[in-house]
């Protein structure tokens, strides 16, 4: 099968791989780059477990043709920490018990980060809207919403 060269920024570092035609970004990240933080939950855009940021915007990597990431900046949960320091969202998720099995967590955190990067003090409704594409079967959404609100710079929702 002919392979296509693909080069992009992955969490701030340049990477290059060869992909088969039709391969999606989730497979490229997990199997070719070795970044296991985006998860496979459905492969059909239904669960959000595979969420990543492309040029700062939230995308479902399972529905993104790998080749379309060429020359762009891809961010995953693997790049969220600052050295040994957790991102405020990661700390808030820990403190608010916003994960049980943890399988939805990478996608949730990326969706939450996409929100806070563009809107540092969201309302509760905006948080709900921001994670509406991410399914969690264990935790329940309340602790997750609370964690995102706690992490927001204002620390609490504007009414």
């Amino acid at each position: 099968m002919t392979k296509t060269p693909l080069q992009f920024r992955h969490n701030g570092r340049d990477v290059a791989v060869f992909v088969d035609g039709g391969v999606n970004l989730l497979v490229a990240l997990r199997e070719l780059i070795g970044d296991m933080t985006p998860k496979f939950g459905c492969g059909q855009g239904g669960c959000g477990a595979c969420s990543v940021l492309i040029d700062g915007e939230l995308h479902l990597s399972c529905l993104t043709l790998a080749e379309t990431a060429n020359g762009r900046a891809v961010e995953t949960l693997d790049g969220m920490k600052d050295g040994p320091n957790l991102h405020p969202l990661q700390r808030a998720f820990m403190e608010q018990f916003a994960a049980q099995c943890g399988y939805c967590t990478p996608g949730m955190l990326m969706a939450a980060k996409a929100l806070l990067d563009r809107n540092p003090s969201p309302t509760r409704a905006e948080v709900i809207e921001a994670i509406s594409g991410n399914i969690c079967r264990c935790t329940g959404y309340e602790p997750i919403i609370n964690a995102v609100l706690a992490a927001a710079t204002s620390g609490r929702a504007r009414a």
Binding site: M36, L77, R91, F97, A99, G102
Partner: peptide, 23 residues
């Protein structure tokens, strides 16, 4: 009292290893 889950740090950093994370 609230007690932290032992696997929580792995969950929020994406380093918890599920079966499919083995290459």
């Amino acid at each position: 009292k609230g007690t932290q889950r032992q696997d929580m740090l792995g969950h929020v950093t994406g380093t918890s290893t599920y079966f499919d994370d083995h290459k």
